[in-house]
């Protein structure tokens, strides 16, 4: 079961990160965070950037630390970790520039 947990860690983190950023997007629009300035960006975008960046950092950590064992077992863990990283980077990249609440 430890092996399975290692293989699924990356995709599970993607699921958590995707849910968190989507929830943050809805909550921020509702709470008017786009009207709150945070340096060069507004609070809404800043919060989503921060969560996304932190999530990507954890993903990189998983890619480095999760692989264990050898042969096919190891390769599946590596693939799982990379799937998580690529999925988080690609599906959440719209936080960079897309308009937020309209």
């Amino acid at each position: 079961m430890t092996w399975l947990a290692r293989a699924l860690a990356g995709p599970m983190l993607w699921g958590a990160l995707f849910s968190a950023v989507y929830a943050l997007h809805g909550a921020g629009c509702n709470l008017g965070w786009t009207q709150v300035s945070l340096g060069p960006v507004d609070l809404h975008r800043g919060a989503m950037w921060a969560v996304w960046a932190a999530g990507l950092a954890v993903h990189v950590l998983l890619v480095v630390t999760m692989p264990a064992g050898q042969g096919r077992a190891r390769r599946i863990i590596v693939a799982g970790s990379l799937i998580g990283l690529v999925a988080s980077a690609f599906t959440l990249f719209p936080v960079i520039a897309t308009s937020t609440c309209f």
Binding site: A87, T98, F102
Partner: peptide
């Protein structure tokens, strides 16, 4: 739905 949310799901 706002554009950003559309983009998340379109990318996925």
């Amino acid at each position: 739905i706002p554009h950003m949310a559309l983009s998340f799901f379109s990318a996925a």
